[in-house]
Nucleic acid binder design. Structure first.
Lengths: 263, 263
DNA sequence: CGATCGTTTGATCCGCATCAAGATAGGTGG
DNA sequence: CCACCTATCTTGATGCGGATCAAACGATCG
């Protein structure tokens, strides 16, 4: 069967389309997107391998196609701090690329086998110089990220561990498109705990309290039992308020009619 | 006495020069800088007034000329979280300007009488579209800010309150150009405490421990007594390591010869 | 079927928050 | 110049949340 040759031959049409729809490319022409994507190389990484380690030069920018990547730092004392856990569609290093002459402050470890699109950092910098839309998209992505970081550190000082976990589970649904009424955790609990800056024992101890507040967790299966109660337990104690994408998503799930009504 | 008319008439030459040298304008021509500055309005705010409050539209971008501005959020529970304290040369809202259709998540309160340059947000967005250098500068500023936030939240989970305070004092010197061998706190201790996410009582209790580790604080007067000890106490427990501007600055103060040697 | 990894549960400890009371300093008016 | 006031800071006593240390439990796998 004859199929039109794409300009990004190493990607399946489906993968190409899902990448084209990333926020990074908002408002760009398909031809521009593909020109950009054409500069990438598709690489496979096995579980346990590193994309880069602390002290490496920042050489690339990545888009995750599949798999799970954990970013973490280490202190000289030996503590590991997980700064992020990334999956399909997430980008890596879009921030560092714009700080010149610096080294990677963190490690990027593939927690699961992963496939990534890899772009030369210099090339991203040049593209930004040439393409205004791309540069505004990155500005917007960076500012959102940085806002979310602020919210998270607010939570660290105003919320209990259980509330933090509840908030995270909501975000998980929002970002990864899981159905809050029932989904499986995409990676293990100790990883989540470290991502949230707590010990796995502490994480474990939050589970009974979550059950009391509308979230049931059995093994890796999570299901939101009572949306209002969860909202009251977490979101009503957060300054993010109505601006929170995860909160909106939860509301739309509980009351899909409001979506249709807007149409 | 005849003086050459500047293109930014409402600024004294001295003020204009100090603003021209902000990182925001790195690599731009003086004429470009002045064109940009020409769009600003100079405004005075008395102590206790707000630049904006939670829920306002994001209408402006600011550069502080003098005074102290405190940014903080409030949770529905009534907690106030100080997210930043800004003084001369600092910019406000350079992040929010690039998130469309959002409201201010926080309050900006003048803790001291303040003078600010105020730019329409739309105008900054347009300038970025036209001026590549400006857009790269903002990308670089945003990525640095976001990195510093990461470091701070790392500290929250790996350092004691005393270590956090010690680190903050180093940064204070670095950012504001204070001499670590002796300087005055530019605002009061309870503000610092809230900025660092701790209670003022806790802050107060760190002081004896700081003295043991090379930092003497009497009233508002701070003096670093033993640079090596401070470094060992804080920086050697931080993953930022050699990339830390504050740490570098401290080293150069203790050993200015190394600066000359590089020349 | 034991070995290993991830998770849960239990007991204890420590750091910071909280509540409460002094101490110090700057400012005002008599 | 001193008495008083208020804001800021320090010090003290107590309690709680999460970390730590330790052990048991459960699932997966050779």
């Amino acid at each position: 069967m004859l199929q039109k040759q794409t300009s990004v031959p190493f990607l399946s049409n489906q993968n190409r389309d899902s990448i084209r729809s990333l926020p990074l490319f908002d408002g760009m022409l398909d031809s521009e997107k593909d020109e950009f994507l054409g500069k990438a190389r598709l690489k496979n990484h096995v579980r346990g391998s590193y994309l880069f380690t602390q002290g490496d030069n920042v050489k690339s920018f990545y888009i995750i196609q599949s798999g799970v990547v954990r970013l973490f730092r280490t202190t000289p004392g030996g503590d590991e701090i997980t700064t992020d856990i990334l999956i399909k569609g997430d980008t890596i290093c879009e921030r560092k690329v714009f700080r010149y002459n610096t080294l990677h402050p963190d490690y990027a470890l593939c927690v699961e086998d992963a496939t990534l699109l890899e772009f030369p950092a210099t090339w991203l910098r040049e593209s930004v110089r040439k393409n205004t839309v791309l540069s505004l998209n990155i500005l917007s992505i960076l500012s959102l990220r940085s806002l979310l970081k602020d919210i998270e550190s607010e939570h660290q000082s105003t919320m209990s561990t259980a509330q933090i976990v509840a908030c995270f589970l909501q975000w998980m649904c929002s970002i990864h498109g899981f159905d809050p009424r029932g989904f499986e955790l995409p990676y293990n609990k100790s990883l989540i705990a470290s991502r949230l800056g707590m010990k796995q024992e502490t994480f474990s101890r939050t589970l009974p309290r979550l059950r009391e507040n509308g979230i049931d967790i059995q093994g890796t299966h999570v299901s939101f039992q009572n949306f209002n109660e969860v909202d009251k337990y977490t979101c009503e104690n957060c300054s993010f308020m109505d601006d929170c994408r995860a909160r909106k998503m939860m509301r739309d799930t509980i009351n899909p009619a409001s979506l249709a009504a807007n149409a």
